[in-house]
């Protein structure tokens, strides 16, 4: 057995036998995927709920639009009180031919929606009652737009985040623990090159990342979540490898500065959590202010996310890899160089 193979085997065994590590590498990010996936899976949950008083054809027509959720009240005083209390954005009171809309001034958007829908329904009924043929017509057609269903968006983001966790923690904790336990010194006293030791550790991290990719995509594709891969999804593999290298380099840097495992995992968390939020792991970064978007461009995770989204669910081809790959490689080389300069064999 060569030194390279046996070192890799030793690290894989150590990894598979450590339940804590397995939890944080696989189950922990998977929990986020499941929770967010279920949380955002019901698209009907954002109907506006309004109160109604009375009955008649106007209310039936409102119900048929499917855009509002109606809640019936016996008298208008109770219903108005609900608006006053802030429990309902608006109340529609129908008294014979009179339709009155009472809305809360606080929520202009909801009020506008409600007034618009109610006016539309009333106008249409007026037209019908007057028997005049309409002069202007509106034709509405629905198209599949480019905006993504939550699971399509979440899977690439959370996968990239999980890979950043395993990459940074993997290299930082191995380095700190090996230095503390003097395994590094012991290896240095053996006729084996630094390159062999380093590449075997990188290989284990890349293998872990590929395993994470398979597990995550498989879970997200379950009917319950309904992820659909598009186009050349296998282009995610080079991104997986390059991303792992970039996070591995960050871990090396963390490992060089920290003396204990506790300090290393604290520092790793301090880097990963803000990076994950700013890189669009849990919500699209397009909604953030412009300066935050600019900041997020400094993170390798942001570029890995973008690339993963493009090739996994946006159906883009190899051209979508160019920018993320270039950034990740540059990042790996820069941070890797600094990490190599500050590397210490012993405390």
């Amino acid at each position: 057995m060569t030194a390279f193979r046996s070192l890799s085997t030793a690290m894989i065994k150590g990894f598979l036998r450590d339940r804590m590590t397995l939890f944080f590498v696989f189950l922990f990010p998977l929990m986020f995927l499941v929770v967010f996936g279920l949380l955002f899976s019901d698209p009907g949950s954002d109907k506006t709920k309004i109160g109604t008083v009375g009955d008649g054809p106007v209310l039936s027509a409102l119900e048929q639009t499917g855009a509002l959720e109606l809640e019936k009240y016996g008298d208008s005083a109770t219903a108005r009180q609900k608006v006053n209390d802030g429990d309902l954005p608006a109340v529609v009171v129908v008294d014979g031919d009179q339709v009155e809309v009472v809305f809360a001034a606080s929520d202009q958007v909801a009020a506008g929606t409600v007034i618009g829908i109610v006016s539309g329904v009333v106008d249409k009924m007026n037209l019908t009652a007057a028997g005049v043929p309409p002069r202007f017509t509106v034709e509405a057609t629905s198209v599949e737009d480019a905006s993504l269903k939550p699971i399509q968006y979440l899977t690439p983001g959370i996968l990239s985040w999980a890979i950043s966790i395993s990459g940074v923690f993997g290299s930082a904790l191995t380095m700190v623990s090996w230095r503390k336990k003097q395994v590094l010194r012991r290896i240095r006293l053996a006729p084996v090159s630094t390159t062999t030791v380093l590449t075997s550790r990188v290989l284990v991290s890349v293998g872990t990342a590929v395993a994470q990719g398979i597990v995550f995509v498989a879970v997200a594709m379950l009917p319950l979540f309904g992820l659909q891969l598009t186009g050349q999804w296998y282009l995610a593999l080079p991104l997986l490898v390059l991303g792992t290298m970039a996070f591995f380099a960050i871990g090396m840097l963390v490992g060089a500065f920290c003396k204990t495992e506790e300090a290393a995992s604290g520092a790793a968390n301090l880097i990963i959590m803000p990076m994950a939020f700013l890189s669009g792991t849990f919500f699209p970064v397009e909604n953030a202010p412009a300066w935050l978007q600019a900041v997020s461009n400094a993170f390798p995770l942001r570029h890995m996310n973008d690339g993963m989204l493009d090739v996994l669910v946006r159906g883009k081809g190899i051209e979508a890899l160019l920018l993320p790959s270039a950034v990740l490689i540059a990042f790996t080389l820069t941070i890797g160089f600094i990490a190599a300069r500050v590397f210490r064999w012993e405390d």
């Binding site: 030793a10 690290m11 450590d18 003097q182 395994v183 012991r186």
Partner: peptide, 11 residues
Amino acid sequence: QLQASSFFEKL
């Protein structure tokens, strides 16, 4: 043999 017991984890 170093002063601390230097071993690989979990082997």
